[in-house]
Amino acid sequence: MPSVSSRLTGGAAVLLLATGLLSFPGLAPNPYVLSAGIVVLHYAVLATSWNFVGGFTGYLSLGHGALAGLGGYGTGLLVTKAGLNSFVALALAMLLVSALAVPIGMAALRVRGASFVIVSIALVLILLLVFQSWASLTGGSRGLVVPRPFDLSRPEHHRVFWFLFSGLLALALLAWWLIDRSRFGLGLKAIREDEDKAEALGTPTFAYKLVVFVVSAAFTALAGGLYALWFGDLDPVFQFSVLTGSYLVLMALLGGVRNLFGPLVGALVVGVALEYFKVEFGNTPLHLVATGVLLALVVLFMPDGVLPAAGSLLRRLRPAGEQASIRDVTAAELRERRRAEEVRR
């Protein structure tokens, strides 16, 4: 059971997040800042969705960009070709992507480690080829224009979508939190630590991985579909990009994959940095170099992410009598202690 201090910290984090989400549209000085905020919020939803698979099972997927792209194109095509209401199309696209995630997951989740990463990259590249080549349906390289769901001014359009993305983020966080505390979550975390051992103890590992992959795909598709309705223009090169998946991994690792708010914090840092680099340096590969450097720094100095590192720092600053329970020790601290123990021996 969580300690009183961790409950208080959690409650404060939820309050801070809710305040930030509700007040940002009013504080944004212009529509550009609000639209940049939506891009960051979109990343936050995607990274949190990615963290259902990455955080719980330890399977690093670089293919989540493809699931978001499928959600976006699914929504766009159902609106433009089938004439469905935008939000009915969004829900239907989510269901279709979830259904498609079953055979994709069944194939991809049979392999582990680097092989899974490669399979996930292959998914993105195959879908990029399909959506570029099938121009009669998808518009190919010309892209697909998705009509706006509301007849609103540009600032109002942004404001409405800010709250829609906020609602989706809250839903994804709630789902992650519920799973984290469930028997299902316990099984998933055992898979992350040692899949064979978890299986030997009776955890249906493959079924669990598949279910959480489908849940992750559903949220990712919703984020992709909502983005399509907000942005209104889809291009296969950007929708089916390995870079998107890489950004999501970076965001989640940066914030901390074992923490509910980790991917959100990572999305804030990386999303804001990406926007900054694009605005300051234009269409140069500098933002990619900066992203690479950031990833290297995180892996070297904060392997568990910013939030666990900050928590650990806070605990060190506390007087000895007020130190938290042994449960709050991070995996990095655990490794450090083990190394020290081995050196002593």
């Binding site: 316990l186 055992a190 051992k197």
Partner: peptide
């Protein structure tokens, strides 16, 4: 079966380890 060497889930709590034993 209790395996050779240490087979606890090291980064999970004792409570989580024990509950995993009763997963079925």
């Amino acid at each position: 079966l209790v395996l050779q060497g240490h087979s606890v889930f090291r980064e999970m709590t004792v409570a989580e380890n024990v509950r995993l034993g009763g997963y079925t």
